[in-house]
Measured scan of single mutants.
Amino acid sequence: KLCLVCSDEASGCHYGVLTCGSCKVFFKRAVEGQHNYLCAGRNDCIIDKIRRKNCPACRYRKCLQAGMNLEARKTK
C-alpha cells in the first residue's frame, strides 16, 4: 500500500487517509503550527518520496486533496 500524498510505503490510516509516517507528521505540524506555506512555482510541484520536502505548500495542498483531516483521528 502506498501513501496517497507522496507514494512512499504507507504505514497506516492517519487523519482519515492512507499515508506514510512522514506525511502524517508533516500534516499534524502544518495544521497545529498554522503555517502559511507559499509555493515558489505554480502550485503544481511534484510530491513524491524524493521531492516531498521541496515544497511544503504543494505537499500540504496534496494532503488536503487526499482528504486528511485532524479531526478524523478523534472519531475513530
Results as ranks from 00 to 15, higher is better:
76 K>R: 14
53 K>F: 10
18 L>V: 12
73 R>E: 11
3 C>L: 00
2 L>I: 15
61 R>I: 07
10 A>P: 13
76 K>Y: 04
9 E>F: 06
62 K>V: 06
28 K>Q: 13
67 G>V: 02
13 C>W: 09
18 L>I: 14
33 G>S: 09
40 A>F: 07
19 T>M: 05
19 T>W: 01
7 S>I: 01
48 D>S: 05
30 A>I: 08
43 N>K: 13
49 K>A: 14
50 I>S: 13
24 K>V: 13
33 G>L: 07
28 K>Y: 12
34 Q>E: 09
73 R>S: 12
19 T>H: 03
70 L>V: 14
31 V>R: 12
13 C>H: 15
35 H>V: 10
42 R>W: 07
25 V>R: 15
38 L>P: 05
20 C>D: 00
55 C>N: 01
53 K>I: 07
70 L>W: 10
8 D>T: 04
24 K>F: 07
63 C>T: 00
49 K>H: 09
51 R>G: 13
44 D>S: 07
43 N>G: 10
39 C>R: 00
6 C>T: 00
31 V>H: 15
35 H>Q: 09
33 G>W: 05
28 K>E: 13
39 C>M: 00
5 V>A: 01
24 K>N: 10
46 I>L: 09
60 Y>K: 11
33 G>F: 09
32 E>Q: 07
63 C>G: 08
52 R>E: 10
44 D>C: 13
26 F>L: 02
45 C>P: 00
26 F>C: 02
50 I>Q: 14
51 R>I: 05
8 D>L: 02
10 A>L: 08
53 K>G: 14
36 N>H: 09
31 V>L: 10
35 H>D: 13
10 A>T: 05
61 R>G: 08
9 E>I: 10
71 E>T: 07
34 Q>H: 05
43 N>V: 04
53 K>P: 10
49 K>F: 11
38 L>G: 08
75 T>V: 08
42 R>V: 14
9 E>C: 15
54 N>S: 07
26 F>M: 01
43 N>Y: 12
51 R>F: 15
64 L>D: 04
55 C>A: 00
71 E>H: 07
47 I>S: 04
24 K>M: 07
73 R>T: 14
11 S>C: 06
30 A>E: 05
10 A>E: 04
44 D>Q: 10
67 G>P: 00
12 G>D: 12
2 L>A: 15
9 E>Y: 06
10 A>G: 06
36 N>Q: 10
48 D>N: 14
60 Y>L: 12
60 Y>H: 05
30 A>M: 15
51 R>S: 11
42 R>P: 04
6 C>P: 00
1 K>M: 14
72 A>E: 14
74 K>E: 15
21 G>S: 11
32 E>W: 04
37 Y>H: 06
20 C>T: 01
21 G>V: 08
68 M>P: 00
68 M>N: 02
17 V>E: 03
74 K>M: 13
28 K>C: 06
24 K>A: 11
20 C>A: 01
17 V>K: 11
69 N>E: 11
41 G>S: 10
25 V>S: 11
13 C>E: 14
1 K>W: 04
45 C>H: 05
56 P>V: 08
65 Q>F: 09
17 V>F: 03
40 A>C: 05
